[in-house]
């Protein structure tokens, strides 16, 4: 569940019951992933379809590492 709140998006993570406050682009990344398992390259391509991306895939990988640390993304 998520709720946009001005600069933040509040996300309730059902499996853990933890509430996260996210800023861009974390919420956009999660929304693009949905429930799918993706490689970084595939996710970058999916995001590039909706957003004007100028960042290297390396920047996306760093954001993904943060989301993994927060427990919102799982490495398979």
């Amino acid at each position: 569940m998520s709720e946009p709140l001005d600069a933040f998006t509040a996300v309730f993570h059902r499996p853990s019951g933890i509430t996260h406050l996210l800023v861009s682009p974390a919420h956009e990344i999660l929304a693009a992933m949905g429930e799918d398992a993706l490689t970084v390259a595939a996710l970058h391509a999916r995001l590039a379809a909706s957003f004007d991306l100028d960042a290297e895939p390396g920047a996306l990988a760093a954001r993904l590492d943060e989301l993994v640390e927060a427990g919102l993304v799982e490495i398979l």
Binding site: L5, D6, A7, F8, A10, T19, L21
Partner: peptide
């Protein structure tokens, strides 16, 4: 703003 109100109320 809503973000601050949310954090305060949690």
């Amino acid at each position: 703003p809503p973000g601050e109100a949310f954090v305060r109320l949690t």
